[in-house]
Design a protein around this nucleic acid. Sequence first.
DNA 1: CTTCTCCCTGTTTTT
DNA 2: CAGGGAGAAG
Length: 668
Amino acid sequence: MATFTIRRAAGEARSFRIDYRGELNDAQYEAATALEGPVLVVAGAGSGKTRTLVYRVARMVETGIPARSIVLLTFTRRAAQEMLRRAGALVGGGAEEVVGGTFHSFANTMLRRYARVFGWPEVFSILDRSDSEDAIGLARTRLGLDRRDRRFPRKQTLASIFSAAVNRGLTVADVVESEYPNLAEDVPDVERCRDAYVDYKRQRNLLDYDDLLLDFRDRLREIPEFAERLRGVFRHLMVDEYQDTNHLQADITELLAGPRGNVMAVGDDAQSIYGFRGADFRNIMSFPERFPGTRVVTLEENYRSTQAILDVGNAVIAAARERYTKTLFTRRVAGDRPQLVPAPDERLQSLFVTQRILGIAEEGVPLSEIAVLFRSSFHSFDLELELARAGVPFVKRGGFRFIETAHVKDVLAHLRVLENPRDAISWHRILLLQEGVGPRAAEAVIDWLSSPDGSLRGLGTPGAVAGLRGAASAAVARLGAFLSSLDASSMRPPALVARVVDEYRPTLERVHRDDAPKRMRDLEQFAILAERYQALGRFLADMALEPPVDAVGDTMAIDAPEGESLVLSTIHSAKGLEWHSVFVIGLADGRFPSAWTVDEDEIEEERRLLYVACTRARENLILTWPATAWDRSLGTIPQRPSRLLDAVPHQLLEPVTLVEEEEEEAAP
DNA sequence: CTTCTCCCTGTTTTT
DNA sequence: CAGGGAGAAG
């Protein structure tokens, strides 16, 4: 069908359904309506950053820009989905086709989508951190670097070194020199190990998290047709949380934007908290240099917090070594001063927090509007016990996730070999689960599988793999027969999970004798997750890249109506969120900042982290610290309040002293 | 070779 | 607090 485009008469005001001028402040309006060219939005905490992005997407859709030509890169898929939902609601639909997700998931999708066109591997598995550590461990063994007479870094350390090198654009030698000076003389071996790891992944079609970004960046850079093609499809790019991007992500942004430069970066240098992952908040400062002609918009009016809370946040960040570009203000009420509560010990901290939460809830604040934030996941262990005792329902975000537990990973490994039979890491994992099979036998089977006569189906024939002993041979044949009976292309993920769990149950009961029932419940959860998926590949990629956010341990949580649970979260996982009342616990030196924090850059990051925590609160902010801590070798040791609080003038905080109730006389 | 047991480590934060 | 590593036994 031919189309004929009627031009608007000159000077005719375009009519939009949405009153952008009326619903946004001046700075937000400018950001939401500048649709061409590079734009940098420096958005303070609570300044309506998400709102601005939502209205910008709506504006684009209303302007007639096809939604599928827009990419919105955010820190989590949930964030992207939420924004697109809101934008869609504003314009009455049409935003669903915006491509949204993380850099990793976008890279994953593009590498797969264009694999056939450019001759890249069409099937690959994604290694999570522990998978990649396992692969590195195998490489280390193979190189004979694990002999006892010689100390050599453990696989976790090696993984950290390799990852830091990739994410910061350094050589292995650079990283060792700056962070592991004690390993200086091992550099050549560490490099050999890295090379072996890289080869191994290549041969087996395996990509770790870093490879997703690295390969995507390199291909965009080295294959001009690829970059051209993507720029033709995706004409408008938005990147949220730009302060937490690393150099690879900045490169990708630049390559996707191309000379046209229709790119908006949104972020806040004061909230950069992923330096440990290679993020460099200076990215945001150098954005205008990378994109000449950048229009810079600063959002400084805070709509979230009371002035009293903001004062504390501003005081925390004012002490930062580097100058920041803005100071937040609000027109909201002054509000009560945030409280600073020293507790004699952790137990009393937990009691105080629990009782105070119940008090706030009694005033009519829903539990889901209250959050407890902490530096490290384990800081909430004691509180979790107390909450359970008091019958307060909660969900926990951050920390060890159930997708990372041994039993869930075991089931995943079965699914992964179905998808990618060359995934030796997963083979290794499931083979070791078989009775009678150790590292040696597993190796033999994997070698056989990758040899000319090896095949999944052949594995089901007893004796196919030479050199296995009776028990091992039978177990391997059984495994082969089982896996051959599954057809990943015709069966849907929930059915596959169900079959694998059935097969795996006896193993689970053997290996985890004491807590098998609890682990089985996790697997039932896992089966439910699979129901949303049609294809195995997509399911596996999502489990690696965007796993469910809830941490393990909520089996302890009391069942609560949807949305009626208190939130416990690491500060990292609280990014971008807000609550009516926020508790920050464990504000003692050694916990927050953590004891590992030594150099100044790290202290600065801890400072930004506390800033993020404080600015999550709308009405109430309560800071607590335990005056003593229990150490199993040292016993009770005194704690000092966090040095990060030194920067906060005393008059900004209301000190609270905890007094224990007198024990009541026994009734006669 | 595999399995079992015991001990030790070491426990940020996440894609 | 558990997961990994080392050492001994089957």
